[in-house]
Design a protein around this nucleic acid. Structure first.
Lengths: 130, 130
DNA sequence: TATTTATTGCAATTAAGTTGCGTTAAGTAT
DNA sequence: ATACTTAACGCAACTTAATTGCAATAAATA
């Protein structure tokens, strides 16, 4: 058994590290292209899947279900701009921060909670000023 | 200018009224089919778009971005079962209920908040018991 | 009855994401 | 170095939800 180095996977990580906000697959391909690396989208999806398995990367979804990827950092939520579609990370999880007991909200006590998501939508600073 | 009656639109509303949970477009077509109405999916999408314009219907999305539709009732959130994918309405909006000041969470005061969503995911009562 | 136009079905299209398969190339063993 | 193994990769085909253009239908009105 051996491990191959893959140029693309490490570059995807680099791009995500440098990114100021979560990126879509086409964002990622665009960024890689600037460095003369033009990978196939299937490759990028496969790399991202592996990185998610390893908890290096997290996937978030916008209103339309399109996926954006970011480096894993502890559970938190996002502001997503309705105009430019950029996702901005919010600090921490206010659900936890505010100690919201989600189980009290459920239709039945027999529901099992596994996760939640919370997005705020609107217009970001950049798009407001134009 | 005149208004035509459309059999399908009123039946879509009826189906949604009787539904115990939000329905996908194929759910809706299935239900209509039971009443001998087999509309084209394009028709159903167009009807739903109009009903949303009139605020009669709301669209929610699951984890994968697939759309579910329900009668409009005041702003609230959902529990979505990871197993059967059924969406259950939660009562009211706990963000509002708990008086969460979302603007304090933002990266900048210049962001303009327009909406938010909140979903709880897990296993519903029915799927737990099987 | 003729006209107007909203409604509908159909087929083609779009876009995100997935999959199968053949090729390439990195790491290891000989 | 050479051969072997297998992970990484590209490509094309496919899948599925949703959208669009166009022609056909039918409801309301004149």
């Amino acid at each position: 058994m051996f491990k191959r180095k893959t140029i693309i996977a490490s570059n995807v990580l680099k791009i995500l590290t440098e990114a100021k906000s979560p990126l879509s697959v086409s964002n990622i391909i665009e960024e890689l292209s600037k460095e003369e690396i033009v990978p196939n989208k299937a490759t990028v999806y496969r790399i991202l899947t592996k990185l998610m398995d390893k908890k290096r990367v997290t996937e978030i979804k916008n209103k339309n279900g399109a996926a954006y990827f970011e480096l894993f950092h502890n559970h938190h939520h996002h502001f997503i701009c309705d105009d430019c579609e950029t996702a901005f990370c919010l600090e921490g999880c206010h659900v936890k921060k505010l100690n919201i007991n989600m189980s009290e909200l459920l239709p039945s006590k027999n529901f099992k909670i596994l996760s939640h998501d919370f997005n705020i939508y609107g217009i970001c600073e950049g798009c407001v000023n134009k």
